[in-house]
Computed example of a mutant assay.
Amino acid sequence: MPVTAKICGLSAPDTLAAAVAGGASHIGFVFFPPSPRHVTFDQAAALATLVPDHVERVGVFVDPEDALLDQAIRAARLDAIQLHRASPERAAAIGARTRLPVWAAVAVKARADLAAAHAFRGAAQRILYDAKTPDDARLPGGMGLRFDWTLLQGFDHPLPWALSGGLDAANVAEAAAISGARTVDVSSGVESAPGVKDAAKIAAFLHTVAML
């Protein structure tokens, strides 16, 4: 089974094109103003027209209100919703209301943190294991932090899942081998500066993933 990749936090046509050309299975648009990767509805709408049908458009949200979700879904023609800092109950409600698949982020630092994934059984369609950020951090992800991938070894995953947190072209092969991930998600690891994607880094990351 090949490893697939999501390039998250895209905000410019050239780097989106690099993601598509490199074989990304998913691209992520961030709808969270504190993030340097935030896109407006107009930006997302323009970028969405450049995404071919075989690549899924994922909207990334932090505990969003319904109005934000509705506008983002329409603008970006989203295929899935990724939720950070949302309870299983809220995730289930969003999935039922939007009728879109939900990716639920689970923040990981210690083995015990993985248990939160089980609460999303029946509430989400995919778990995204991401590195836990400091308590005072404004952002729930995209900070280049990674967690100990061995924590995922032998874990009874309740749902299909993806690995995120501190990945880049230099470590993604090791991360997939250690964790068993078949879907990987990268953001800061393919940037030249916070929020500034780098087409060459995207190409290198996706080339490495294609060899797995």
Score class of each variant (00 low, 15 high):
Pro158Leu: 11
Phe155Cys: 08
Val184Trp: 06
Ile178Glu: 09
Ile178Tyr: 00
Val184Thr: 11
Asn171Phe: 11
Ser164Glu: 04
Ala181Phe: 00
His157Trp: 14
Ala162Glu: 12
Asp185Ala: 08
Gly180Thr: 04
Ala177Asp: 13
Ile178Leu: 15
Pro158Lys: 00
Ala175Asp: 08
Glu174Asp: 15
Thr183Cys: 14
Pro160Trp: 11
Ala170Val: 08
Ala169Asp: 13
Ser164Val: 01
Asp185Ser: 13
Leu159Trp: 07
Ala162Asn: 06
Arg182Ser: 13
Gly180Ala: 03
Asp185Cys: 11
Leu163His: 06
His157Ala: 15
Val184Gly: 04
Pro158His: 06
Val172Ala: 01
Asp185Gln: 09
Ala177Ile: 06
Thr183Val: 15
Leu159Ser: 02
Val172Tyr: 07
Trp161Arg: 03
Ala181Asn: 05
Ser164Met: 08
Gly180Asn: 10
Ser179Arg: 08
His157Ile: 04
Ala169Ser: 14
Arg182His: 14
Val184Cys: 06
Gly166Lys: 08
Asn171Ala: 12
Gly165Arg: 06
Ala162Phe: 03
Ala162Trp: 10
Asp168Arg: 09
Ala176Tyr: 07
Ala177Pro: 03
Val184Ile: 14
Val172Asp: 05
Trp161Gln: 05
Asp168Ile: 04
Pro158Ala: 00
Ala177Trp: 13
Leu167Tyr: 00
Glu174Thr: 14
Ser164Asn: 09
Asn171Glu: 05
Gly180Phe: 10
Gly165Ile: 03
Ala169Thr: 09
Asn171Tyr: 00
Gly165Asn: 08
Ala181Val: 06
Ala173His: 11
Leu167Ile: 02
Ala177Tyr: 05
Trp161Thr: 02
Asp185Glu: 09
Gly166Val: 02
Ala170Ser: 15
Ala162Asp: 02
Ala177Leu: 13
Ser179Thr: 00
Leu167Gln: 08
Pro158Asp: 06
Asp156Lys: 12
Ser179Glu: 08
Asp168Leu: 03
Ala175Gln: 06
Ala170Met: 12
Ala173Gly: 12
Ala175Val: 09
Gly166Met: 00
Val172Met: 03
Asp185Lys: 00
Leu163Glu: 09
Gly180Glu: 02
Val184Asn: 06
Asp185Phe: 11
Arg182Phe: 12
Ala176Lys: 05
